[in-house]
């Protein structure tokens, strides 16, 4: 399984150049059955990342471009009256797929955003009084432009909590950019990619993540981190118990990617900034910090 997962990382990395860590985090998020929020400027490869993941993992892929006039029914689907049969028939929306790219999720109105987020949480869609399950595995990659751009509805904290991780892609380094510029068109490349895994194998890998051992010593560390976030003067509010569960799930997935069947404090540290970053409200006067700065704060917590 480890070999297979590394193959996935290698293949995704062949398209998204020089971004091994974000790719790894994205895969860990997927294995931990969480949803991913990518926050970055336009044009750094967010969409391509989602697309290449879908292709590599053999997942049914839908892209939803969020705009300010997008309505919930445009995502979930709508019941249409059919003249021949004389009854309403449900036309599933784009959400009925295995990997959804919710592009620029902060451009839609809160009403539409919440329709998506509820589907993410419940893994099912309720429309016209009828509940329909979403396919498995189900994975949402939402992208978001940094908040200070014009014409956006920033996601409230309660909604951000639905995402297991938030990652940034950032500009490629010089060598990677050169390769990108010199290389072939990414779209052509994408079309040629073979699937490396089947969805069944992915479900199997997710089950394996849940079986990764978490020792009491590690739980001590996770609790110390949670406690720190709640007491620290740097944050307005601390991490929720759900964040704690997410931290563990992410650490387990990270451990599996490293080929281990037990999790280490290092696994927790690897995912911590990405699990905690979007959940913590930092005290304004200190200025917001990125995930790296967050890691520095959490370094105050000794490993028990």
């Amino acid at each position: 399984m480890e070999a297979l997962l590394n193959q996935v990382i290698t293949q995704v990395g062949s398209v998204i150049l020089g971004k091994e860590r974000p790719i790894r985090l994205a895969l860990a998020c997927l294995l931990a059955r969480g949803h991913l929020l990518i926050e970055d400027l336009p044009g750094v490869g967010k969409t391509t990342l989602a697309h290449v993941f879908a292709t590599t993992l053999g997942l049914r892929f839908n892209r939803i471009q969020f705009t300010s006039d997008l309505l919930p029914a445009d995502i979930l689907g709508v019941a249409v009256y059919e003249r021949e049969s004389g009854e309403f028939r449900f036309h599933p929306g784009p959400i009925f797929a295995q990997l959804i790219l919710a592009d620029e999720v902060n451009r839609a109105t809160p009403k539409t955003q919440s329709a998506l987020l509820e589907a993410m949480e419940e893994h099912q869609v309720t429309s016209e009084g009828e509940t329909r399950p979403l396919p498995e595995p189900f994975f949402v990659i939402a992208t978001q432009n940094p908040v200070n751009q014009i014409g956006t509805f920033p996601l409230p904290e309660s909604q951000l909590d639905r995402f297991l991780m938030r990652i940034e892609l950032g500009y490629p380094d010089v060598a990677a950019e050169r390769a990108l510029l010199a290389g072939r068109d990414r779209r052509d490349l994408l079309a040629e990619l073979p699937p490396v895994m089947t969805p069944e194998q992915l479900v199997q890998a997710q089950a394996q993540v849940r079986a990764v051992k978490v020792s009491p010593a590690l739980l001590d560390y996770v609790q110390a981190l949670l406690e720190y976030s709640r007491r620290s003067p740097h944050f307005l509010t601390g991490l929720s118990p759900r964040a704690g569960l997410g931290l563990l799930a992410g650490a387990r997935a990270w451990a599996l990617l490293a080929g281990r069947d037990y999790a280490l404090p290092e696994d927790v540290q690897a995912v911590l900034p990405h699990v905690a970053g979007h959940r913590l409200q930092q005290v304004q006067s200190e200025g917001a910090r990125g995930s790296e700065g967050l890691a520095v704060w959490f370094n105050e917590v000794a490993i028990p």
């Binding site: 280490l264 404090p265 290092e266 540290q269 959490f298 370094n299 917590v301 490993i303």
Partner: peptide, 9 residues
Amino acid sequence: RAPHEGPAA
């Protein structure tokens, strides 16, 4: 070893 440094690191 820094207090926050994991054993593997």
